[in-house]
Amino acid sequence: MGTPEAQATLRRLAVARRVIYVLVAVAVLVPFVYPLPFRFRPSPWSEKVFKKVEALKPGSPILFSFDFDPSAMAELYPMSLALLRHCLQRDLHPIVMTHWQSGVGITKQIIEEAAKERGKQSGKDYVFLGFRAGGSNLVLNMGESLQGAFAKDFFKQPTEGMPALEGVRSLKDIPLVIDIAAGTAIEMWIAYGRDRFGFDLGAGCTAVIAPDLYPFLQSGQLVGVLGGLRGAADYEMLMKRPGSATKGMQAQSLTHVLIILLIVGANVHYLSRRLKGSTKG
């Protein structure tokens, strides 16, 4: 059971923990109730992805691999939606697929939401290929024959002769691939896709894996990256269509400031106790 002092300490820690939880909840809630006016400009790496999409001619194919599931939805759904809206606005032909079976439902939702806004049709203006097992083997297959890897799309339409896939026989015919990922799929696309078949590769990812991609940005293996909710907000800003990501950044600001204050406060307290201890001798 422990000594009374130990129990008192445990109770204090439990209370402190719950106070922090409440503070975090309040920091997230407040900007939704009272919108904050913080402005921001898109980051350079987000702009590079945007410019790559802008540079494609209308009618060009562009492949999206949405490799995430509901656990990363908050960051990657707005990003994916913004990208697809951009593509459909420019009359590109998005080819959408996923390597994650638990992400099929969300991927379908995203493409259907974006397509409905502009009255685009599956098979004619875009194609949703769905999911196939295989990972890197699937990428290698697609590099030789897209129709071989996906004989039918998600809606069971044959991909052979599909108008949305006109001129596309394999990954070599696709100028730009964008992988939106919550795991290691981006590195897989670099190693088994981009370095082999020569297309430009952009990425969108959760904030957790964004720091790991900087070596690929510097080497040019990635043309740009949209990192986390900030990346999604950057793209909405570049599209001049602020959405949930832009709104979410206000809550992000407040919560980050709270956590920074908590860390700084705790360290000031710790250092002052250490100094007091050392001066006492």
Partner: peptide, 23 residues
């Protein structure tokens, strides 16, 4: 440290997503 900062950002984003759904 950079990874920790980004991880905090990622987790807070997930919370923001759920709060947005509820509201």
């Amino acid at each position: 440290g950079a990874s920790f900062g980004y991880t905090v950002m990622g987790r807070v984003s997930l919370l923001i997503g759920r709060v947005e759904f509820l509201l």
